[in-house]
Simulated scan of single mutants.
Amino acid sequence: MMLFLSLLIAHHLADYYLQRHTWIMCKVQHHEKSIGLFYHILVHVGLTSCALYIALAQWTWLSTFALVFIITTHYAIDIWKTYQTFTARYYIADQLGHFVVLAITAASFIQFYPDLIVPSFSFLPFNHTEQISFLAWGLTLLFLGNPTGISYMVFFRPLTQNKDIGIAENDGEIFNNINSGAIARLTSVIIVGTGQFILATFLISLHLTWTYYQLLPFSKTDTAEQYSARKVFNYSYFLANHGLAVGLGVVLYLFT
């Protein structure tokens, strides 16, 4: 579990937080010859190496094999993705492919070489259970930031395309533009995950009320089609934000 969580954290950091937009555009334009892809893979090599070394407390030939397996498959999947359109099904296939590779890597160590995996991290002053909780919380907060934001941008794009309702697709830019969606998700998961259910209900209700009153002025300026699209987007976005955050918060509350 510690190895898998460590690899996932490294993946999210490299794929979402440390991948520059110029690298992505370079990949789309130049595919396997892209210098942006090369830089992106270098970041993955560094972070994945750190995750493997920390979770195994040593470096063996198996570590090298695991690193080569993860990086080559990531490279192949990313090249494949550059030839596809940026739509939900290809986005899901891309991330699912990376997830499966990391799961296979962690499962292989657990099944065949369990003695290599350290029971706890020596640099964290907590017991094993507390360290698992620490990793789970860290991964959840990372996931609800940029990865979830970019995912929503992909999934909700059809609700805003060709509607001219002025909704920007920038939810994934949590470091460059801290947006209300990211704040709502992170606030919900923290409050629910720490067991503050009454406070969570109050704040979510307050956010729903704020969403409702935000929409009122547009009922006078939008066409019927635009206003309908705006309502569908805003309420879907509200439910997705809090639904995912509350669900993960409950899991954290029960198991950490």
Rank of each mutant, 00 (worst) to 15 (best):
V100Y: 08
A88S: 08
C26M: 09
Q58A: 15
F112E: 01
L47T: 08
Y90A: 01
L141C: 06
N127S: 03
V189A: 02
Q19G: 09
H21R: 13
A184T: 08
T129F: 07
L186F: 06
A55C: 14
W137T: 06
L215C: 01
L47M: 14
T48Q: 13
N162Q: 06
V251H: 11
Q161K: 14
Q58G: 11
K231G: 04
V43T: 15
Y237L: 08
T48I: 15
V246Y: 04
F112P: 03
I183Y: 11
I79T: 08
S180L: 15
K33P: 09
C50P: 01
P158L: 14
T221W: 12
H98N: 05
L159E: 05
H40N: 15
E169W: 02
F86Y: 12
H12K: 08
R230N: 00
Q19A: 07
A107P: 04
I190P: 06
S236P: 00
L199I: 15
G195V: 12
A182N: 08
A136S: 09
F69V: 10
I174Q: 00
F155C: 06
F123H: 07
A51Q: 09
I178V: 12
I70G: 11
A184D: 15
F197H: 02
S228C: 12
V251W: 14
H40D: 15
R230L: 00
I35K: 14
Q58R: 08
L52A: 03
Y253N: 02
Y212H: 01
I9T: 07
L37C: 11
H207K: 14
K27E: 15
S188C: 14
N241D: 08
L141S: 03
L62F: 05
I24V: 14
L254V: 15
L5E: 08
A57K: 14
Y235N: 08
F143T: 03
S122D: 04
L186K: 02
G172V: 04
F197Y: 07
L252H: 14
Y83F: 10
P119K: 10
N170G: 06
F109M: 06
S49H: 05
F202P: 05
T221N: 11
W137G: 04
F38A: 15
L216T: 10
A88V: 09
I167F: 00
G149H: 07
L96R: 02
D164L: 11
I191H: 03
S133E: 12
F233Q: 01
I183N: 06
I104M: 02
S120I: 12
R89N: 13
Q84R: 11
V118E: 09
I35M: 15
K231F: 00
K220R: 13
I92R: 11
G97K: 01
H207N: 11
L13P: 03
I54G: 02
Q196S: 07
W23E: 09
Y53T: 12
L37S: 06
I24P: 04
G172P: 01
S151I: 00
H12E: 13
L5P: 02
V246I: 13
Y227M: 06
L102G: 04
Q19K: 13
A184P: 03
S120T: 11
F99G: 04
A168M: 05
T22H: 03
T160A: 07
I35W: 15
G36E: 10
R157D: 10
N179P: 00
P119S: 12
L206K: 07
S122T: 08
I104W: 05
